[in-house]
């Protein structure tokens, strides 16, 4: 082909330039909507930014003051403590339930397992905010659906205040979150289960291993990698839980369900709108999640070739 007469879009680029051009939109998006805001959040976190400053457009540099105020705020530590409890409960239950349910739907010859397999993805379709509201209807002290079920079944005599009691509220909000995010974990474990060669089980059965031994010797070692991945991904996302808290408890009763993302949201977008402190607290949350992300990166690059 005559290079000079070929229009530019038909001309062959070098592989390096081709890769760069193909990635331009992505680089632009990542830079504009991810890298720049994260950097800007860091900038805001060391400046005094309130509504007045926003109107004037002048932010005074304050150094570590915002961080200091966040770290001295008892509510922040309550939020961190609640986030940790929330994360440990949700991620722990999700992994146990995901392995159990994945084994269950992998079981041949049980017709109810087919129904479960068909329904398993349903929670993935529910918008988190709707999920939260549905559970606040379930949990409602006076009118709640859960109490109605328990009354009808004769299990309780007086209504239970599931989400309105400071002692149980945090546990109450873990259940909807587990419900919504469990399909993801089950699907990953189920995919890993299907990758285990059947011959291993047949051989073990010939050797006389019982179900528990087969699980310990074959299934569990083959699942470890995927469980580590689920553990990391779910931990990082549970750290930033927001919708269910907004819909069910709004942080209450008292400060029983204030979590880290809710803290940043309220500090920033509820009066007195302290954007600086909000950024500082969101940045602390981001650093914690970034540490988790780096562990994930190391984990998947140890074996993945892509």
């Amino acid at each position: 082909m005559n290079r000079a007469r070929t229009p530019w879009f038909r001309r062959e680029m070098s592989a390096g330039r081709f890769a760069l051009v193909m990635n331009l939109p992505t680089l632009l998006c990542l830079g504009l909507v991810l890298a720049y805001p994260v950097g800007y959040a860091a900038y805001l976190s060391v400046h005094r930014v309130g509504l007045g400053q926003l109107r004037r457009g002048e932010f005074a540099f304050t150094g570590w003051e915002n961080y200091g105020r966040v770290l001295e705020d008892p509510l922040f530590w309550v939020a961190i403590k609640n986030t940790l409890i929330f994360t440990v409960i949700t991620v722990g239950s999700e992994i146990v339930l995901a392995v159990a349910i994945a084994l269950l739907i992998n079981q041949a010859g049980i017709w109810t397992s087919r129904i479960t397999r068909f329904l398993i993805l349903l929670p993935y379709a529910i918008p988190p905010i709707c999920n939260g509201l549905i559970w606040s209807f379930l949990y409602s002290f006076q009118f709640g659906f859960l109490n109605r079920i328990l009354f009808t079944a004769g299990l309780i005599d007086d209504p239970v205040n599931w989400a309105g009691n400071p002692d149980t509220a945090l546990y109450a909000v873990t259940v909807p979150y587990i419900w919504r995010t469990l399909p993801f974990a089950i699907i990953l474990v189920h995919a890993a289960l299907q990758g285990i060669p059947r011959e291993l089980y047949e051989q073990a059965a010939i050797d006389g291993a019982n179900a528990w031994h087969r699980f310990r010797q074959i299934t569990w070692p083959m699942l470890q990698q995927i469980i580590a991945i689920i553990l990391i991904l779910r931990t990082a996302f549970a750290f930033a839980v927001f919708e269910e808290i907004l819909a069910i408890t709004q942080g209450g009763p008292g400060d029983a369900t204030w979590v880290a993302a809710w803290y940043s949201y309220k500090i920033t977008f509820a009066p007195p709108n302290n954007f600086g402190m909000g950024s500082a607290s969101a940045f602390i949350l981001t650093l914690m999640i970034a540490a988790i992300a780096l562990v994930y990166l190391r984990l998947i690059y140890r074996r993945v070739t892509l």
């Binding site: 994260v38 950024s279 970034a290 992300a293």
Partner: peptide, 14 residues
């Protein structure tokens, strides 16, 4: 991969 972990809340303020 790392960007996937960035929590929305830290993006929303800026």
């Amino acid at each position: 991969i790392v960007a996937r972990f960035v929590p929305v809340i830290v993006l929303m303020i800026p």
